Simulated scan of single mutants.
Amino acid sequence: MHPLCESCKRRGIMRKGDVVDHIIELRDDFSKKLDKNNLQTLCYSCHNKKTKIEKAKREKRKSQKLF
């Protein structure tokens, strides 16, 4: 793991990472739990944004299954 936020770094910003994040959330694929390639360092802000987006995607998929 790197000490910098991967998301910020991709945008040219050097910010300290605070959270080790599962790239593919465990709710979506629990088998990735121990996969080191499924981990990234994020700052709290980027982690919260990513979590919000992933939650919205799950809700959209869930609502599409109802129809």
Rank of each mutant, 00 (worst) to 15 (best):
D21C: 05
K16A: 11
S63G: 00
R11D: 12
K16P: 03
L26P: 02
R10F: 09
H22N: 09
C43N: 07
V19G: 02
F67G: 15
K33D: 05
L26G: 06
R27A: 10
V20Q: 09
T51Q: 03
K50A: 03
K49M: 12
V19Q: 04
S45V: 11
M1R: 14
K16D: 08
L39W: 04
C8A: 15
R61Y: 09
Y44H: 11
N48T: 15
H2W: 06
P3E: 05
L4Q: 01
N48V: 14
C8I: 08
E6L: 06
L42F: 05
Q64W: 12
H22L: 12
E6I: 02
N38F: 04
L42T: 01
T41K: 00
K60F: 14
Q64N: 13
E54T: 05
D28E: 14
I13S: 11
C5Q: 03
K52I: 05
K33M: 11
P3R: 10
F30A: 13
K60S: 10
V20C: 14
E59H: 07
H47S: 06
I53W: 10
I53D: 09
D18M: 08
D28S: 08
Q64H: 11
F67L: 14
D18L: 09
I23E: 02
K57N: 12
H47N: 15
K60E: 15
I24G: 01
K60L: 15
V19C: 03
E59Q: 15
D29P: 00
I24S: 02
R10W: 10
C46Q: 02
K32Y: 04
T51C: 02
C5V: 03
C46M: 01
L34M: 08
P3V: 03
K32H: 03
C8L: 07
H2F: 09
L4I: 08
G12V: 00
E59T: 01
V19M: 05
R11C: 11
H22P: 04
L4T: 08
K62A: 14
I24C: 10
N38V: 04
K57T: 10
Q40T: 08
D21A: 06
L66K: 15
G17L: 04
R15N: 10
N37W: 11
P3G: 05
S7R: 04
K50E: 02
N38K: 10
M1E: 11
